[in-house]
Amino acid sequence: MMTAFDAGLGVLLVLAAVRVVATSDVRAAASGFLAYGMILALAWVRLESVDVALTEIAVGSGLTTIVILRAIAHVPSPPSSSTAGAKAAVGLLCACVTLGLSAVILGLPEPASSIAADVAMNMPATGLGNPITGVLMVFRALDTVLETIVVLLALIGVWALVPQERLAGRPATPGTGRSPEPVVFLARALVPIGLVVGAYQVWAGADVPGGKFQGAAVLAAMGLLLMMAGIVKAPAATDVKLRALLLVGPILFLAVGIAGWPLAGSFLGYPPGFEKPVIIVVEIASTISIGLALVMLVLGPPGRASS
């Protein structure tokens, strides 16, 4: 029964991917990409990777699609369907990557080498219940530090697209000037629920699937909704408070990392006995920074607000 379901899921996934590539309408491709992300998330759930599924829905599918749709709206003439030659070249390249990945996966030794046992053995020392969070915050903390910095770098890249004098302007919120009534309703009804869900995802990430990226994405969505409803104004890129909050996560993470040398004997080592409180403080600070960075990434280059 489940095999049939998984097979159906696999077929749907391929169909959705083909639809994204095959359509010449960029908007249809964008909404197809959203649907593709949802099916992919379902596949991750079937692989028991709920953490990945949550991130896929929130960041990979949700926020990314909004960025794509906004980009389509702001590109003067949407790049018309590229030439058949270019499409064929891209398709060939993608096929090569797919075949290469398939070869690697099929060639994996059986049983696949895994460090899961090592992680499980060392989990008690972290004070955490969710092994994914254990890997992200303890065993591979360096990767996670760099990830929070990458989000920041992406935002700097977006801000660098505008000339200096426009940097002080506010970015345009999605939609057209006047906030439609349903959006205002949605902001009032959904934001209180979303704030609780986002905060819960961050807090519960220590023991069950969830964490700062998923929570930050939900909180960012709520922030965007408030801006679209005209309840909150989009901050300007030069806002000192905004910049301080964008930096608090990466700086605190790095500070904890450097403090690890004297306190725990290694970079990113946590002081023995205080692992969980330190991790939670870093997670909360990172959530604030990542959430705000995601909001500003979706809003796009500053200085575009018409009013």
Binding site: P180, P182, V183, F185, L186, A189, L190, I193
Partner: peptide, 16 residues
């Protein structure tokens, strides 16, 4: 409940 709220609002928005 959340789906009711969001799908209702989204439908209204698209309708407008």
């Amino acid at each position: 409940i959340v789906v009711q709220i969001s799908s209702g609002a989204a439908a209204q928005l698209m309708g407008e």
